[in-house]
Amino acid sequence: MTLTQIVFWTFSALAVLGAAMCITRRSPVASALWLVQTLFALAALFVVLDAQFVAVLQVLVYAGAIMVLFLFVIMLLNLGRPGPSDLKGPVGLAVATLLGGLLFFQLLRGATPSAAGTPAGDTMAQLQQEQGIVGAVARPLFSQYLIPFEITSVLLLAAIVGAVVLAKRKL
């Protein structure tokens, strides 16, 4: 087992653990923190998978911005106190386990490498060597995917306006 694999499996285990804890903790704050762990572990996995720039963004955007927002809202609504559990009863647990498990097997069935086409080797690694880690991602983003990129800005603007309108008590 190479070092890469060891790192990969370690952080995979951390991610899955974080996810599992996230969905089972009673307190929303605990859930959020376990989710942060999963996000960090995923950032590490991204590094292993030759997506260093994405990994950085993952830490900045998800762990740094989105999760903070979540925590802010939890605190704003004063949900951090221990209250009645929001976990469903045994029936809910059974349904969740059953459907989740079924979905997992379905996804595994579809997610075999052969179904993803023949892997063409280390395409990302080559691109990064030719253009640099950021350049490999930035060039297509600002040329081929320019229009979706610009539309994303519109989306974010709309989200900002929407959020303000929704959250403000009085306009």
Binding site: D122, T123, V137
Partner: peptide, 8 residues
């Protein structure tokens, strides 16, 4: 994971 082998 797919980008690693299939492109950016």
């Amino acid at each position: 994971a797919l980008a690693q082998s299939l492109g950016v």
